[in-house]
């Protein structure tokens, strides 16, 4: 187990290096730079700013500078926001995105999995049809449409909840619902099909035949096995949810990391692009590792190391 984890972490570092390098190359090859302005800068001013950010050095040198900083845990200053480092941008944005992501995740697990289980148990009855109808709707409606609708109904018309921003616990509700809709619907469908498949297995029939209680059969034998494909989906999904969604954060004016990620690209804020990319990639790799470890816990048939 320990050796497996160590091996995976080693491989992850290599993956991260490849990601940073590719991002670095692509980032510098798109036209424009952090000093691209609607009103062009006077040449002298442009030169002195380039000097400050090492932008006038050859690319390999900038690359070396970047890794030098990275070795000290410094991702450098933002080239867009004066007096702010990329470390600070991540430290500010991530907790907000993570809180929102967790709320959405909770909502998704509390609604999606039970809905899927009920559908599977009441196959082709009205509960199944109703849940699957909304699950289809949930997958089909883009989240920005739902977000706008939620703001209009609960914020503008009913004035029950704040329309936007990140000020109180009520601020979490609407964006979390909008963010959770798609994965909830998807998880419900996934749980249903996985559950239906498992319920038809011989070992379930054997469990019934042994006279086990309904509870034990359903939760211990059926659901546990049905969860494997869901866990697979959850790994990258959790990474995605916790690091923020551009669309939802923009619509609800939430100061999270998701907005920063996309904005930094249109701003050509090189250091922020790299920093957020590294953060996101590392998080994703970590979640995938967690998922792989979880397989072993949930499904005894899977062994990580032979």
């Amino acid at each position: 187990m320990f050796r497996y984890v160590a091996k995976r972490i080693g491989a992850s570092l290599f993956t991260l290096w490849v990601i940073v390098t590719i991002t670095f190359i692509i980032m510098h090859s798109i036209p424009g730079d952090p000093l691209t302005r609607d009103k062009q800068l006077p040449e002298a001013i442009r030169e002195s700013i380039e000097e400050q950010y090492h932008l006038n050095d050859p690319l390999w040198k900038q690359y070396a500078y970047y890794f030098q900083g990275l070795a000290h845990g410094e991702m450098g200053p933002s080239m867009k926001y004066e007096g702010v480092t990329v470390n600070e941008i991540i430290a500010q944005g991530f907790p907000v995105s993570a809180q929102l992501g967790l709320a959405a995740l909770l909502l998704m697990l509390l609604v999606g999995i039970p809905a899927g289980v009920i559908s599977a148990l009441r196959q082709n009855q009205w509960q199944d049809h109703a849940a699957m109808f909304f699950a289809t709707l949930g997958v089909a409606i883009p989240n920005f449409v739902l977000a706008t609708l939620l703001i209009y109904v609960f914020g503008v018309k009913l004035e029950l909840l704040p329309t936007s921003r990140w000020v109180s616990w009520q601020s979490v509700i609407l964006p979390a619902v909008a963010l959770a809709m798609y994965p909830t619907a998807y998880i419900a469908r996934l749980t249903r099909s996985s559950m239906v498949e498992v319920l038809g297995q011989d070992y379930i029939r054997a469990a019934w035949a042994k006279g086990l209680s309904r509870r034990t059969v359903l939760y211990k034998h059926a659901l546990r096995n049905a969860l494997v494909p869901i866990i697979t989906y959850l790994g990258p999904l959790i990474a995605g949810l916790l690091t923020g969604s551009f669309v939802i954060e923009k619509i609800f004016a939430i100061p999270g990391l998701g907005q920063q990620f996309v904005l930094s690209i249109s701003n050509r804020d090189y250091t922020t692009i790299l920093g957020v990319t590294i953060f996101f990639a590392a998080f994703l790799i970590f979640m995938n590792l967690v998922v792989d470890l979880l397989y072993g816990v949930i499904d005894p048939r899977i062994h990580l190391e032979k």
Partner: peptide
Amino acid sequence: ITFIGDESTMLSSYEAGE
């Protein structure tokens, strides 16, 4: 001074009296 960047959102917020 609030920093809502999206125009539709600011209008919703304005119309909600915020």
